[in-house]
């Protein structure tokens, strides 16, 4: 549904901020931008359950807060479980007549660590139980808050502070990024999508669809981290676009099990164009580069097939 969002579409975006300025994220943080866009997409009738991580730390140092919506943080690995609890709590009280009925979006959010690693089980449980909630993963592909350690969302070949170069190890991540959107699709939930703040209107639209979904919904947002990816802070949006244009991070949505690519006729650019500008991939061996390309092509073709485009 990109078509109706014409040149004036940006004017339709909510002008009110729910994740307000003054937070302490790094310069050029595309994750903070993504959070801001999600806030705009959802409006004020929302309850946020946030995992420990960058977005929690930069936005909530007492007595400051950047949140102009009800926001709750407890631990690192339980954002989805806490969100499912808020859903149950509100639901029971509305049913028993103690709270008025009000359309409320229950949002769980976490970084890639809080989603694909330590929060994986809680998320799987919450999605499987079918709570009426949505979960957003802000994926910057490593534990950036603690200082750029690898997570299971760290891509092949990336350098992190726990995949260092040593005498017998070239210092590259050897495993392929965990395919979280696909795992969520396997939970048979009604809505799964990928998004990137480099494409803000698409992101907003998908988040709104997730919010309107009855039952669990999941949005995986690639959130470029200039600090951890070793790129100049003004390049975050550009790198995000390259991730999509090279097929490294395909944009798609899966509605009730049906795949739909966001860009139908994308001519993929070589992944080298995406990898080269990033310090975390500096000096990547040619065979690793090839392996990376191979994996991206395979994954992309697989998605095209599933979407009926190939």
């Amino acid at each position: 549904m990109m078509e109706p969002l014409n040149v004036y579409a940006s004017r339709l975006v909510n002008s009110k901020e729910f994740f307000v300025s003054g937070h302490k994220s790094c310069q050029g943080c595309a994750e903070a931008l993504a959070v801001r866009l999600v806030g705009k997409a959802l409006g004020e009738n929302v309850i946020v359950s946030c995992a420990t991580g960058c977005m929690e730390v930069v936005s909530s140092a007492f007595p400051h807060t950047s949140w102009d919506v009800p926001w709750f943080h407890t631990a690192f690995g339980n954002a989805a479980a806490v969100a499912s609890g808020t859903e149950a709590g509100i639901k029971a009280q509305v049913r028993k007549g103690r709270l008025p009925e009000k359309e409320t979006v229950i949002l769980g959010m976490a970084g890639d660590g809080g989603t694909t690693d330590i929060g994986f089980q809680a998320l799987s449980g919450a999605m499987e139980r079918g709570h009426n909630m949505m979960f957003v993963c802000y994926d910057n592909e490593a534990y950036m808050n603690t200082g750029i350690q690898r997570s299971s969302a760290t891509p092949l070949g990336a350098r992190t502070t726990t995949t260092p170069a040593g005498k017998i190890n070239p210092g590259e991540e050897f495993t392929i990024k965990k395919n979280m959107p696909e795992i969520m699709v396997s939970h048979n939930i009604p809505y799964v999508a990928t998004a990137c703040p480099s494409y803000p209107l698409d992101l907003i639209e998908k988040v709104q669809k997730a919010a309107k979904t009855k039952g669990p919904a999941y949005v995986h947002i690639l959130s470029v981290c200039p600090t951890g990816w070793r790129i100049p802070s003004e390049k975050a949006i550009w790198i995000g676009r390259l991730a999509i244009e090279t097929g490294v991070f395909p944009l798609f949505e899966v509605v009730n099990g049906r795949y739909k690519m966001t860009f139908k006729d994308l001519e993929l650019r070589p992944v080298e164009e995406y990898l080269k500008p990033q310090g975390r991939f500096r000096g990547l061996a040619p065979e690793m580069m090839e392996k990376f390309q191979e994996q991206v092509t395979d994954n992309y073709n697989d998605l095209l097939k599933k979407s009926g485009l190939k």
């Binding site: 309850i47 479980a81 609890g85 009280q93 089980q121 809680a122």
Partner: peptide
């Protein structure tokens, strides 16, 4: 159980 208490936190925080 980690989620048992986490769900309880989320629920209790809504006043349930």
């Amino acid at each position: 159980e980690h989620s048992a208490m986490s769900v309880a936190c989320g629920s209790s925080a809504t006043g349930a």
